[in-house]
Design a protein around this nucleic acid. Structure first.
Length: 497
RNA sequence: CGCGGGGUAGGGUAACGGUAACCCGUCAGGCUCAUAACCUGAAAAUUGCCGGUUCGAUUCCGGCCCCCGCAACCA
């Protein structure tokens, strides 16, 4: 067998100013499915996630909670880390925090190189400040040039000296990158979007803040009066996580790690939400160019989880979904199932408890769970065992070859939904076979024929379990195990709710 | 004329020039191995509106209406 490239995949790092929400859980599950799939194909996999912990909002949030900022981010980060077991994420996943000593060192080193390459400069930056809110305002927050909360007060313009990144230099190089590699952003429509954005022209952006105003950030090298703007710091995690610049991962040296995961892998696959398109597909790529590192391999953009009818989820509307609650009520694989098959892989999709429950009953309890029970019951009651010959024959059949093709193609294109649909089509077809051939009836009249049928059904169930493994790791493994041991599940795989 | 996505059966989605498909739900029948599960069949859509191109448009073109994001220094 030829040696496969190492594979590096990462989520974005969620910002820890709020509880983990379903949107990030979705992203983490998707990346995990791809990571597990690649691993099952024989690739060596580095899977990264973590937490983004600097910046104004976090600093404010900590103050509101009357906590030391460090203590606040420690507990918030720990909360996100709990998602790993709760969502059935590969336990060997790397978890980087932007407050890690190694990450801080990497971010500063990154800055120094970009600076040395002439891509950072200082200039006066006019900020809009609302005296009423005592806060800096962005253009998009203003209505008719006034703060909507304090429309009677004039917005103050305050000048502040900040460092800027020469983003404007990268229009052409970015356009070339998109042109040269049309799969760079998935799906295609998002590539079009970022191309159009870059084509309109880029402006340098500010990458630091006055430390006196916002102390919670990584100090700018050789200038204690400034800290880095969060984005500039956080994006660097994709390389600090794999040991840039000195091959240190999680506090330990790992010789050649960076080269292996960044270069030999062909680059990182980054999962992120549509609100991150610019940062990941343009800003970050320009930053990499600034330090003369190769670009990411692919940016996969997924949509938002919305409430019923496509409305935005928000606490005030009361339509948010807590991933921990879902897992508690239905189990890890049930949530993974919903993410994999019931949510659109790239567009916004609704998530409500009602829909979730409906899908759970229809496809996990009635579909997969029930099929497993009925086949294993016939097998165990008649002492008919799974054998390799039937598995081989099945694997060679046109039907399975086609299902596998759809499964593999789906996963390779990050279309987890169509990969899952392929498996569920196999489940449906298998239910149909039971009905049509009626081995349960035939066993009384033509035992030999019934035995053949049941062996085929066992082989099918085993194939289903195998394909399921990256998507529903616990269930997939359990099914394969039950088939091989010729046992009924001690309790239904998915109890009807 | 800022940019982008979208409006298809009760709900969620698919097809993208040639009798509108799938899942959930609903109704009827069948089966009894199974988690009242499973299988078959049915009802249900003038494909947002108006025009155009075409033998023929959900699919192409133009206009309009409506929804949803984004509008960079807000993670």
């Amino acid at each position: 067998m030829t040696k496969l490239n190492p594979f590096y995949i990462t989520t974005t790092l969620p910002y820890v100013n709020a509880e983990p929400h379903i949107g990030f859980a979705m992203e983490l599950i998707r990346a995990d499915i791809v990571a597990r799939y690649k691993k099952s194909q024989g690739h060596e996999v580095f899977f990264n996630t973590g937490t983004d912990e600097h910046g104004t909002k976090i600093h404010q949030k900590a103050q509101q909670s009357h906590m030391e900022t460090q203590a606040y981010v420690d507990q918030a980060s720990a909360r996100f880390k709990e998602l790993i077991p709760a969502l059935g994420i590969m336990p060997e996943i790397n978890f980087v925090r932007t407050t890690d000593a190694h990450h801080i060192k990497a971010a500063q080193e990154f800055w120094k190189i970009a600076d040395k390459n002439g891509l950072i400069y200082k200039k006066n930056y006019k900020i809009k400040y609302c005296v009423g809110c005592e806060l800096e305002k962005t253009e998009s927050e203003l209505v008719d040039g006034k703060c909507p909360l304090h429309p009677l007060q004039e917005i103050q313009i305050i000048e502040e000296e900040n460092y800027f990144f020469r983003f404007s230099l990268y229009q052409k190089p970015l356009m070339d990158l998109y042109e040269k590699w049309p799969g760079f952003v998935v799906p295609k429509s998002r590539l079009n979007e970022i191309q159009a954005f870059v084509e309109r022209g880029l402006e340098d952006f500010s990458i630091s803040r006055l430390a006196s105003k916002m102390p919670w950030g990584i100090p700018v090298p050789n200038d204690p009066t400034q800290v880095m703007y969060v984005w500039f710091d956080a994006l660097v995690n994709y390389i600090s996580a794999i040991g840039w610049p000195d091959d240190e991962i999680g506090g330990t040296k790992a010789a050649g790690a960076f080269k292996k995961w960044w270069t030999e892998s062909g680059g990182v696959v980054q999962y992120c939400g549509k609100d991150n398109l610019r940062q990941q597909a343009a800003m970050w790529q320009a930053m990499l160019m600034a330090v003369k590192l190769p670009p990411s391999k692919q940016i996969v953009i997924d949509g938002f989880v919305t409430g019923d009818g496509g409305v935005k989820m928000s606490k005030s509307l009361g339509n948010t979904v807590d991933p921990f609650e879902i897992v508690k009520g239905y189990g890890t694989d049930a949530l993974r199932y919903y993410v994999a098959r019931e949510l659109h892989p790239f567009e916004d999709s609704p998530f409500t408890i009602e829909r979730f429950k409906e899908a759970y009953n229809a496809h996990l309890a009635n579909g997969l769970g029930n099929l497993t029970s009925r086949i294993l019951k016939m097998a165990t009651a008649n002492e008919i065992k799974f054998d390799e010959a039937h598995a081989k024959a099945l694997a060679a059949s046109d039907e399975i070859v086609e299902i596998r093709r759809r499964y593999v193609e789906g996963l390779e294109r990050f279309d987890i939904q169509s990969a899952s649909n392929a498996i569920w089509d196999l489940i449906t077809a298998t239910d149909k076979i039971v009905q049509e051939r009626e081995p349960f009836k035939k066993i009384k009249t033509d035992k030999a024929a019934a035995t053949e049928d049941i062996k085929e059904l066992l082989a099918r169930l085993q194939a289903i379990g195998g394909m399921l493994a990256p998507i529903l790791p616990e269930t997939g493994a359990k099914i394969v195990d039950l088939v091989e041991k010729n046992q009924m599940p001690e309790s239904p795989l998915f109890m009807r709710k």
